[in-house]
Design a protein around this nucleic acid. Structure first.
Length: 260
DNA sequence: CAGGATGTTGGGTC
DNA sequence: CGACCCAACATCCT
């Protein structure tokens, strides 16, 4: 679930369902997913507080209140849903914030995500993050890459460089920009950086309405789970390998490998 | 049964 | 320090 468009969807969900509601208590069916305090401590900090308009930085969701901020990260399988008091909960609902108008439920099957309490600056729990990928214009993007060593895919996915892109988005952007994922950043010329920035904007703005990387026609994500996927653009059989320690798909025709 | 999956962290290496 | 790799985390699915 969790790359920038997914988390933006969760942000909208909090804005629609939780903003303006007041916390009555916190319940943690799995207390381990309350990461930097105890469920009791989280409750003491949030009880009586009212959710305000949430924000997002990269893959982190910041559910602000009129006091501290509830910070959420979704790992690989986290999502939010809403329930009314007395509704059956899902077995993977790990943390539940009970408000005066219903329950915000953090569901996380694989338990890679979690919730944190930020009494002050959320950066204390998120750690250092680069600028949000949606906010980076062409010049800023070029400056981020300038001086960067290593491969372009690992750069795009480095949250301290640029926040919000994950494995699916990185492959999607590289495919759209016709750039091989193993291309050294230092080999990119200005036109390549233009193409990458354009592709990033197109992929993000295209994905946002879906609140996910859409597995649709014309997207790499639409074919990457097939048995023998082929390029949605040129039809060549896609290649697969490990790049930046992640499962990676690319088109050998559209994205020629970097010359050694 | 083995292997893989949209993420992050910590340890070790060069 | 910058960057890479791997293992680990927990759970489900093929």
């Amino acid at each position: 679930m969790p790359e920038l468009p997914d988390v933006e969807g969760h942000r909208r969900f909090v804005a629609e369902r939780a903003a303006g509601r007041t916390v009555e208590r916190v319940e943690a069916p799995d207390p381990d997913l309350v990461r930097n305090t105890t469920p009791q401590g989280l409750g003491r900090a949030l009880n009586g507080r009212t959710f305000r308009e949430p924000s997002r930085h990269g893959k982190w969701l910041l559910a602000h209140t009129d006091g501290p901020t509830l910070v959420l990260h979704f790992g690989m399988t986290g999502y939010l849903h809403w329930g009314e008091a007395g509704d059956d909960r899902h077995e993977h609902d790990r943390v539940v914030v009970v408000t005066d108008g219903g329950e915000l439920r953090f569901n996380c099957m694989r338990k890679f995500g979690g919730v944190w309490l930020a009494r002050d600056d959320p950066a204390e729990v998120t750690g250092p993050l680069g600028p949000d990928a949606l906010e980076v214009d062409r010049d800023a993007f070029g400056e981020l890459l300038a001086g960067r060593r290593g491969g372009v895919k690992s750069a795009l996915m480095d949250q301290e460089l640029l926040a919000g892109l994950g494995n699916l988005l990185a492959d999607e952007i590289l495919w759209r920009a016709r750039t091989h994922p193993r291309t050294p950043v230092g080999d990119l010329d200005a036109g390549d950086v233009d193409d990458l920035h354009d592709a990033m904007r197109e992929v993000l703005t295209g994905a946002l309405p879906h609140e996910r990387v859409p597995p649709e026609e014309g997207w790499l994500t639409g074919v990457r789970d097939e048995d023998a996927p082929s390029c949605p653009r040129c039809g060549a059989p896609l290649e697969h390998g490990t790049v930046a320690s992640r499962s990676t798909w690319w088109c050998p025709a559209c994205q020629p490998p970097p010359s050694v």
